[in-house]
């Protein structure tokens, strides 16, 4: 049972969290023409890295969507940061 750090709530048990996706996906502007391969990449392509990863998670109890850095092999958690602050 892992401990994840919510940027707002602090360390909490992994059962309170939900994986939302890999960091770095930007939604294409769909009011413009989006080529099928680009849309398919957006929908389906995953890096699925082994080792250090940066991911988006949601802390379900407070609904915070945030960025977490962790190691997908050792399960070590490096840290987390607000998605908003990261976006600014």
């Amino acid at each position: 049972m892992q401990i994840f750090p919510c940027p707002f709530c602090g360390p909490r048990n992994e059962t309170e969290f939900h994986f939302a996706g890999e960091l770095g996906k930007e939604r294409p502007d769909t009011t413009q023409e989006v080529a099928a391969p680009d849309w398919a990449t957006y929908l389906y392509a995953q890096r699925n890295e082994k080792g250090p990863v940066r991911e988006v998670w949601m802390h379900l109890t407070c609904s915070e969507l945030f960025v977490m850095e962790r190691d997908s092999v050792s399960m070590e958690v490096v840290g987390s940061g607000s998605l908003r602050e990261g976006a600014e």
Binding site: M1, C6, F8, C9, G10, P11, R12, N13, T15, E16, T61, C62
Partner: peptide, 15 residues
């Protein structure tokens, strides 16, 4: 729950 009185949290929401 895995609760600790010495671990402060800004939120009272939890499982």
């Amino acid at each position: 729950a895995e609760l600790r009185l010495d671990a402060e949290s800004k939120s009272v929401a939890r499982l």
